[in-house]
Design a binder for these strands. Structure first.
Lengths: 192, 192, 192, 192
DNA sequence: CTCTAATCGAGACGGTACGTCGTGTCTTAGC
DNA sequence: GCTAAGACACGACGTACCGTCTCGATTAGAG
């Protein structure tokens, strides 16, 4: 079959590159992330990066896929009260954004997604049907808190989209905002 | 009194710069937009740009403000049936995205917003309380199609955020998706 | 006793490498000659080159030694008239230089010699005491056309040096120049 | 006439670049001379070099033209004895070659000349009809020590060519060699 | 007839330098 | 005082080669 030969790809280098990417992405943001910087930080030749990734977008997408960019996903609680649980989740998300660099992270991801289709798709994947949020929504449907035909993916999109938009637009993200957003999707007026 | 004197700012140059910005932004996207490119395209010295704008973000923000970047805003119809009207509006928006370069435009705006706070805020402004969508929602409240306490701004955010997220994630945007999204915010199952 | 064993050096590879070297040297010159290029052209791994040669200078020196770089050496005639014979020889040499790539070849050799001592020495060897020119000069001494104590090697150096210098300086090399050069070393004025 | 405008070329930068070139050329030789190195040494952007010179060859040619590369030209004495004077001159030249880096300098110039036509021509110019050597030869013709029709330029070429060839070939350059070379061009046997 | 060790092709690796592009600042001359 | 033009120091780009280092796969003696 194929005449495979030659030295094998170095796992050490691969990992060093992705970690360096994550480190720089986290500290300086997507648009101060440079291939040269990653190479230097990882102690690697530039060509070793270009051999395996075609752009810094792909690099970020891969780091994202390895879970090096995002903090642990937030678990929405399941108290039986869907409205309360979603509000709690959203409040936690907003809490992340308010931590120093939290909104920068989201904006950097948006910039990366804008430039690179892979990043976009992978962000979506990690938020989509397989996410913690979607799981909670599904139990909501089973418990009759949501109508049976509801589109769970779109439900999630709507919440996450609102979060992203607020990060891009630098809208304030306080607790009341969390409640208002939940009210928009669950109907009714905000509690407070 | 004050030593006011000297040549006055050239309106010709200002307009040429913003139009060049819009032209390049539209055809090559935000990250191929360069100050040098704009200067050349506008037949202007670079310094003339730097004197009045501090970054390409501001440039884009200004072009946006002048309405040079976006097509005419979409008017949601007012047939009395809010669900149908919102679905129509969303379908029209998706139509824009499906035109060649339509989703690139949204992604470019996201990239610009990620990099520059002004762009973010201005995008939000043009979509916010003063937008056509907000107006239609307000008539919905008056007509009793929406509960009186609903947060109109957040309602809009949620829809627009979903659109932006779909553009970033390259999610398909067909008619059924429009209906599903409307159902998420208005409750109930999609019609079809 | 000694652990002699293992695969023996491949003559095929050796020859392919030297021929590839000669081919590239001839067509692209010394400074576009790269080890990677030679390896590719010869269908050989780079390591196989580095195992047997330490630099591209040595490579060229070896190709030179195998006679792969230079055309057949020019024979000075022996008509009994030394001045005429030397002029003929020099005219032939100039003829080589005027062929397309002829002066490039000499300049490439100079560049190689400048960088690598071996090349320099080998060029000298092939032009020195063992050369055709030296042989003709020796018969000139025997025939009394040159004084008995004359330094034959230096005599050759002087002529070859003038040729190299003209190639480096891009001086024109016409027939009259050949006669003038011969006059310089043999004394008297040029014939024409 | 032409609409000249824009900032004027910086003489400071020009001089710094040529001096850095000379410094590096002298200490590390032509093939360790890099544009990046010159830029760094001169405290200048690379583009400033590329704007005015097309290759490192041109750079060296210019530095040569400014007299930054070569030591003061050697004056042949004029004692009335042409043979003695030429021998003295050649001995001095060989003395330069024997100083540390002296032959490297000549070889570097040869390499530069091989790569760049300008360098070649300028070396020739500075050694040619206008040189000190040519002047001494001319007085030799006037004094009847050389035949009237002798080609002075070629006479010089022959001597200089021999020197260059010896540098390239790493031939030893002792005093006896100087005498032998002079004998070749002046006829007769070396004195000693 | 196996074992062993040097060679082969291939090709990834950490580097250096290339020549280009864009940044933001500065210096001209012209209006 | 603003403008078009354009040079400047700087930083990053993506590419080409360098010389070194694995990798299987051959391929000869030595046992």
């Amino acid at each position: 079959m194929t005449g495979r030969s030659g030295r094998v790809r170095s796992e050490t280098a691969r990992v060093a590159i992705l970690q360096a990417t994550a480190r720089i992405f986290g500290s300086r943001g997507y648009d101060h992330l440079t291939i040269e910087g990653v190479a230097a930080e990882a102690g690697v030749g530039k060509q070793t990066i270009y051999r395996w990734w075609h752009s810094k977008g792909e690099l970020v997408a891969d780091a994202l896929l390895e879970g090096l960019l995002l903090p642990e996903p937030l678990l929405p609680p399941d108290t039986g009260d869907l409205r309360a649980d979603l509000t709690t989740w959203l409040r936690d998300v907003f809490g992340l954004l308010q931590r120093p660099g939290g909104d920068d992270l989201v904006r950097s991801l948006a910039a990366a997604a804008a430039e690179n289709a892979d990043v976009g798709r992978r962000i979506r994947d990690s938020l989509g049907a397989t996410s913690e949020l979607a799981a909670r929504l599904r139990t909501g449907v089973e418990a009759g808190q949501l109508p049976p035909g509801v589109a769970i993916e779109d439900f999630g999109d709507v919440l996450v989209g609102a979060v992203v938009l607020r990060a891009l637009a630098r809208t304030e993200t306080d607790e009341a905002a969390a409640e208002r957003l939940v009210s928009v999707v669950l109907g009714g007026a905000p509690q407070r």
